[in-house]
């Protein structure tokens, strides 16, 4: 494609991206999804629009469709580990979610760790799960700390319940 043609396309989709940004801020996922479809209708290889489309579908509880979109656009979505793993998690494909997160060959960021902790709970790997919550609690200051603490206690209690012989440190730090 010539650069002139590309510039023309960029000019066309720029207002659509502005619209998309606005809907993202107001969490209007239905309208945002329509906008991503408009952008992808003009240019199918828009990586960011594809990413936004997947987020919209997930926010609208369409995890099946979101995961299909990820699989169909394998190259553009290769780095969307969190989105892929979360779809798998919600579709009850917990082993897949675990493998997706384990395939990340760098240190996990905060949201990936948060999801991994939830995945480990479902997999009944409470020991590891508690470890992640300990570190998440230590390194976080956000508004969800009390809920995170509840999750930590849930993991700890279930661990204690299933493995009463092990010596478990009960403190969060």
């Amino acid at each position: 494609m010539t650069t002139e043609k590309q510039e023309k396309i960029d000019e066309q989709i720029r207002p659509l991206y502005a619209e998309l940004q606005k809907y993202g801020q107001t969490q209007d996922w239905d309208r945002a999804l329509k906008t991503t479809r408009k952008i992808l209708g003009i240019s199918s290889n828009e990586k960011k629009a594809t990413h936004c489309k997947i987020v919209c579908l997930m926010q609208l509880d369409k995890f099946d469709e979101a995961l299909n979109t990820i699989v169909k656009n394998a190259i553009d979505t290769a780095d969307l580990f969190f989105e892929r793993a979360y779809c798998e998690y919600r579709l009850n494909r917990i082993e897949d979610a675990y493998n997706t997160l384990k395939s990340i060959d760098r240190e996990l960021n905060e949201r990936e760790q948060e999801l991994l902790a939830q995945v480990l709970f479902k997999l009944e790997k409470y020991n590891e799960c508690v470890g992640y919550y300990r570190s998440l609690l230590k390194n976080n200051q956000d508004e969800y700390q009390s809920t995170r603490h509840a999750n930590f206690i849930a993991a700890l209690a279930t661990w204690k319940l299933t493995d009463s012989s092990s010596k478990i440190q009960m403190e969060s730090n």
Binding site: R14, G24, E114, T147
Partner: peptide
């Protein structure tokens, strides 16, 4: 009998759009 505690879904709060600034500004 003890029941399995509820685990809250905190990961969903992290599901947001990527930054679109570069796409909005030409």
């Amino acid at each position: 009998i003890p029941c399995k505690p509820i685990l809250f879904d905190l990961a969903l709060n992290h599901l947001i759009f990527p930054s679109l600034d570069d796409k909005v500004q030409s």
